[in-house]
C-alpha cells in the first residue's frame, strides 16, 4: 500500500472515468446520456494528463511566496500538461455544446431521444 501515492490515485481515477465514459458511449440509448458519456471520457483524460505532469512534493507552477524565485526548477510541477488541459477543457466545452445542439435539433425534428429511432444510416 505504500506506493499508493497521490499521482497513482488520480491516475487510476482518471482511467476509471475513461472506462465509464466508453461504457456509456457504447451501451446507452439516450442521446443525452451518450453526450454525458463523452464528457466523462473527456474529464478522465484531463485527470490522467494532470496526474502524469505531477512531480512529488512540489507546488503549483505559480511563483508566489511559497516558491523560491532562485530555485523554481526544483519547486514546481510541470506547467506544460496543465496548459494542455486548460486548452482541452475549453475545446471539450465547445464540442459538448455543439453535440447538445445537434441533439436539440434532432429532438425538434423527430420528437425522440432514443438512438434506435434514428436508423437513416443503417443498412
Amino acid at each position: 500500500m505504500e506506493n499508493l501515492n497521490l499521482e497513482i490515485i488520480t491516475l487510476i481515477t482518471g482511467v476509471i472515468l475513461v472506462l465509464i465514459g466508453i461504457w456509456g458511449l457504447l451501451t446507452q440509448k439516450n442521446l443525452i446520456k451518450i453526450v454525458i458519456g463523452f464528457t466523462l471520457f473527456d474529464t478522465g483524460i484531463h485527470i490522467i494528463m494532470v496526474s502524469i505532469g505531477y512531480v512529488k512534493n512540489r507546488t503549483a507552477p505559480i511563483i508566489d511566496q511559497s516558491v523560491n524565485i532562485n530555485d523554481v526548477g526544483n519547486s514546481v510541477v510541470d506547467p506544460v500538461p496543465q496548459a494542455l488541459v486548460l486548452t482541452a477543457i475549453v475545446i471539450g466545452l465547445g464540442v459538448t455544446a455543439l453535440m447538445l445542439t445537434y441533439v436539440l435539433k434532432m429532438y425538434q425534428k423527430r420528437k425522440s431521444l432514443e438512438i434506435n429511432n434514428y436508423n437513416d444510416l443503417k443498412w
Partner: peptide
C-alpha cells in the same frame, strides 16, 4: 511501473527556470 515523477523533464525545466526572466509572468501556465 509509474511511480510518479521526481524531476521535471528538460522542456518543463527550461520553462520553469527561464520563464520568469524571459516572459516575466508569475503564473508559468
Amino acid at each position: 511501473g509509474f511511480n510518479g515523477n521526481t524531476d521535471l523533464n528538460t522542456l518543463a525545466n527550461h520553462y520553469a527556470v527561464s520563464g520568469p526572466e524571459e516572459v516575466g509572468s508569475a503564473n508559468l501556465v
